[in-house]
Amino acid sequence: MQDLHDPKLRLEQYIGMKVKRKRVEQGLKIIDVARIAGLSQGMVSKIENAQVSTSLDTLSRLCDAIGLTISTLFSDYDRPEGGAQLTRSGEGMEVVRRGTEKGHTYQLLSYQRGKKKSYEPFLITMDDASEVFPTFSHPGQEFIYLLEGRILYRHGNHLYEMGPGDSLSFDAEVPHGPEALIEVPIRLLSVIHYDDTQ
């Protein structure tokens, strides 16, 4: 059976498949639908088998007979195909950034970002509480979400103590970074959003 989301599906095929599926779900036979809609059995069969282009009036009567609204009938037609990148746990691409030499591990969680780099999501792991950390400064806005551990995080002259579930959003051009790792290991999600100039 063809997929309703197949972009190559002709409109008549789409209508036929949708109508037949709904009729079968309702437990109705073609003869029942034809009688309720005031159509011939042959016409109902031809519509279901995509052998005829039907008028809106006929289609409306047919849909009424099987309890299908016109808006629902067309709700999936011509829907964009879509497609997302799934990154499984532990499968993010490991990248080297400032701080890597200090024991930070950076996993880039998305690699397909369109024509321009608009954002970068990282999973960052830190596990050495005795390290002195560098500060970072780069274009864009950054959002961090602490998943595990406790950290004292600096942004400019402000310090924020963060625990699991806490988040921080800030201008990434202002110097920022870990001030102290209070409880390790630390895992945090960092999403850097760039403006249109990147």
Rank of each mutant, 00 (worst) to 15 (best):
Asp127Pro: 03
Leu108Ala: 08
Leu168Thr: 11
Ser118Ile: 08
Phe122Met: 06
Glu91Ser: 10
Ile151Val: 15
Glu94Gly: 00
Leu152Ile: 07
Phe143Met: 05
Gln85His: 02
Ile192Leu: 06
Ile144Met: 11
Leu28Val: 09
Asp166Ala: 05
His158Pro: 01
Tyr119Pro: 01
Gly140Thr: 04
Leu86Gln: 14
His176Trp: 06
Glu148Asp: 14
Leu159Ala: 03
His138Phe: 02
Arg154Gly: 07
Leu189Phe: 15
Asn49Trp: 09
Ala34Thr: 07
Asp127Asn: 15
Pro134Ser: 09
Tyr106His: 00
Ser130Thr: 15
Leu189Glu: 03
Thr100Asp: 13
Glu183Leu: 11
Ser71Gly: 04
Tyr160Arg: 04
Ser40Tyr: 13
Glu91Leu: 13
Gly42Val: 05
Lys18Val: 12
Gly103Arg: 02
His5Gln: 05
Thr72Met: 09
Gly92Ser: 12
Lys102Gly: 01
His5Val: 05
Arg154Leu: 01
Glu148Ile: 07
Lys46Val: 02
Lys22Gly: 07
Ile151Lys: 02
Gln26Asn: 14
Ser110Asn: 11
Glu183Lys: 12
Lys115Gly: 11
Ser53Met: 01
Glu148Pro: 04
Arg35Cys: 00
Asp196Gln: 14
Glu173Phe: 00
Tyr145Lys: 10
Val184His: 02
Tyr77Asp: 00
Met93Gln: 15
Leu62Cys: 15
Asp57Trp: 05
Lys46Asn: 10
Ser169Lys: 15
Val191Asp: 00
